[in-house]
Design a protein around this nucleic acid. Sequence first.
DNA 1: GCCAACGTTGGC
DNA 2: GCCAACGTTGGC
Length: 153
Amino acid sequence: MNYWLMKSEPDCFSIDDLAGRPNKTEAWDGVRNYQARNFMRDGMKVGDGVFFYHSNCEIPGIVGVATIASTAYPDPTQFIQDHEHYDPTAKPEEPRWLLVDVKYQRKLKRTISLAELKAQEAALPGFQLLMKGNRLSIIPVRKEHWDYILTLE
DNA sequence: GCCAACGTTGGC
DNA sequence: GCCAACGTTGGC
């Protein structure tokens, strides 16, 4: 079992949006970064843990826990013309972009903010979220980091 | 709104 | 294959 952190802008899709979806599950479309895609394709298994992270907002941080609900499969939005995530170079017979289904588990009792995580940096050596210049929307989380972060709740 | 960091594109 | 230009991310 692996652990991940997945970013979403709450103005676009928040933890409450996920909780309100049918079956509390959403197809995580729109990932257009090869590293993030490869994490989904090569690393994710059903049942993996996910920290749901709110980015680009007033208090960026981890707001909830979710699970991976499917293995990776082609992201249909890459083929939809006029769609925000349309990719004219992707062919149905050779999909370029993948997604996974993500299922809501619970909200944290409180947001564990990026500022707080930075303050805990000494206890989280190598945590990619805290690395300079990190922009990846999907980040692997080591089990010891996962466990430690949950003790902060 | 600013800007640093980073990925991608495309000319050469 | 290099690298400048450009676009995007995301914290602040």
